[in-house]
Amino acid sequence: MIINRIIKKYFVLNIVIGIFLIICIPVSAQEKRVGIQVSPAIISLSLSPGKTISQTIKISNITETQIPMRLSTYDLQSPDDDTTPLPLSRASELLKWLTISPKDIVLGPHETKEITLTIQPPNVVRTGGYYATLYLESLVIQSANINNSRVIPNILIPIFTGVNLAPVKSHEAEIISPQLPFIMVRDTNTQILFNVANNDIFHFSAQPKLAFQNIISREDFNSKFEEKIVFPGKSRKWNVPFKVSQNPGIYKEILSISVGNGLQKQHTQYVFIAPSIWTMIFIFISILIFIFIQLRKNIVRAIRAIIFNE
């Protein structure tokens, strides 16, 4: 009875304390979430000699923590397995034309600010692609415990530009070192390996497609691979597992890359799609038996010659 009275008396207080615990326990006073949103996250601009162009970028703080930020620009490094340097890279030139304003901002909780990226190419400039990155570095306010290690989220925005870049253009590109299998086993992964080299002065987005056409039934199918931007003078690698589930047979295998304006570069070869690995073994053994039968007289003769010295 007394207990009931106490519960009733402190019922409201219990609820308040409960809510307080639920809200406060998961959130450490010392460790705060930090989050940033940026738009656009990829910048693509067409430049003209001597003409200034600007791009507004919105940066938002999506958390409750105040975030001081510093903005700076760097060269754009190729992200993939490129083994050669970038001979046509003029990224450093773009950095000379590029200004950001302001360079330092402080974002309050859930605040959005705009910065302006201005590019002023000189009057005389070579036609071609120019690349850079915009680095958004959050200078997270040190937590109450200064002895903690800091965790800092940053964002890198790629900047793609081209001087005198036509809206629609075909690019000089080639498929190099294609390693397409001559034999594929149905429903079994096979590794497809090839590189695409960009011999142009502009970057382009390579869209590889692998098409198969049965040379007898004309049955055809195709598959698209990941689309990647290839920088001028560089190559990018595709190394992808590939599985076919089509009927066995001999197919024409066409690897094609769209290089813009409806043009494609192609590599063609023939491939045998086998129904299973056991079929392959059966065929192999059959061939061996056939060869043996064809040569058996000579083999028997040779054995006799060795054993009996005939």
């Binding site: 705060k32 979430r33 989050g35 656009p40 996250a41 990829i42 965790v151």
Partner: peptide
């Protein structure tokens, strides 16, 4: 659309 990106870390510090 405009390409956008949002990135968040769960805490701004680690205390071992």
């Amino acid at each position: 659309s405009v390409p956008s990106l949002t990135f968040q870390v769960s805490s701004d510090s680690i205390s071992f």
